[in-house]
């Protein structure tokens, strides 16, 4: 297990919000123009800092949703946490033209590198899809040959971020499969009742362990614990299963 060194230090800088876009009733994408962005790998995150008029400030980390074509804006997609301090500001208050301090990119482990030849299995719980979406977008832009499968667990169809884009990408790209798991309510005509991710889901819609896929699991702690335990029980090498868990607000 080895990471990749990130050179230099991470400096706070002011980004400008150039657009916002609703993804679901409680998640919003914020498009950021960052004057001096060094580029990022899919899966990395950034730190964002808000400051109140009296100088009080709060920092949080957010996964980057966009890929990096070498220039242009950077997108984060934020899920509103009802008791959160920063996320409701980002989902409900921020408008184009606002400036936000941030620094990044951060993280050298939970990243997909296009030079890795293995097939890729992405397992998302709720807003854990965000860093995985960056990987899917990077794959699409590079027309990478590694086949990708995404298993995406959401409570209801309305809670799925990027649903239209994922549909379009699956239609246009034979190397990408997406399977949804609905835990509370399924779409009309869905062949199974709501359920949580289980052995059958990962067995049927993941890659066989023999393919030695690179696996990325992201979501709330309980979801990640469950999915990672099942993957190891199915025979996946634990060192090939990378996880990112989130909690707090």
């Amino acid at each position: 297990m080895a990471g990749t060194a990130l050179p230099g230090r991470l400096i706070w800088q002011a980004a400008t919000v150039s657009a916002v876009r609703a993804e679901t009733p409680s998640a919003r994408t914020i498009v950021l123009d960052i004057p001096d962005w060094p580029g990022h790998l899919p899966g990395q995150h950034l730190d964002l800092r808000l400051t109140a008029e009296d100088g009080y400030s709060a920092q949080r980390s957010y996964s980057i949703a966009s890929d990096w074509p070498g220039a242009g804006p950077v997108e984060i997609t934020v899920q509103r946490l009802e008791d959160g301090e920063v996320s409701p500001y980002l989902t409900d208050v921020v408008e184009p033209g606002d400036r936000i301090e941030l620094r990044g990119p951060i993280g050298g482990w939970f990243v997909w590198r296009s030079a890795q030849p293995a097939p890729v299995l992405l397992v998302a719980g709720g807003s854990g899809v965000v860093p995985l979406m960056s990987m899917i977008r990077e794959r699409g832009r590079l027309r990478a040959r590694q086949p990708f499968r995404l298993i995406y667990s959401v409570r209801t169809p309305e809670d799925a971020s990027f649903a239209g884009e994922l549909r379009r990408r699956v239609r246009d790209d034979p190397g990408l499969d997406v399977h949804f798991v609905y835990t509370r309510k399924t779409p009309d005509g869905w062949p199974a009742p709501p359920k949580r991710i289980d052995v059958a889901t990962l067995n049927s819609h993941g890659w066989p362990p023999d393919f030695a896929p690179d696996v990325f699991v992201c979501g709330p702690t309980s979801f990640v614990e469950t999915a990672a335990d099942i993957l190891v029980a199915l025979g996946h090498d634990p060192s090939k299963v990378r996880t990112e868990r989130f909690g707090g607000g």
């Binding site: 706070w12 002011a14 800092r49 808000l50 400051t51 109140a52 008029e53 100088g55 009080y56 400030s57 709060a58 920092q59 301090e85 500001y89 208050v93 606002d98 400036r99 936000i100 301090e101 909690g247 707090g248 607000g249």
Partner: peptide, 26 residues
């Protein structure tokens, strides 16, 4: 002090004594 975030008040400051910089209480 950083750039002021328009409309940001902050909620947790009363419940977060003596934390290292940039941390919040959970």
């Amino acid at each position: 002090m950083g750039i002021i975030s328009r409309g940001f008040g902050g909620r947790r400051r009363d419940s977060a004594p003596d934390l290292p910089p940039g941390q919040y209480l959970t």
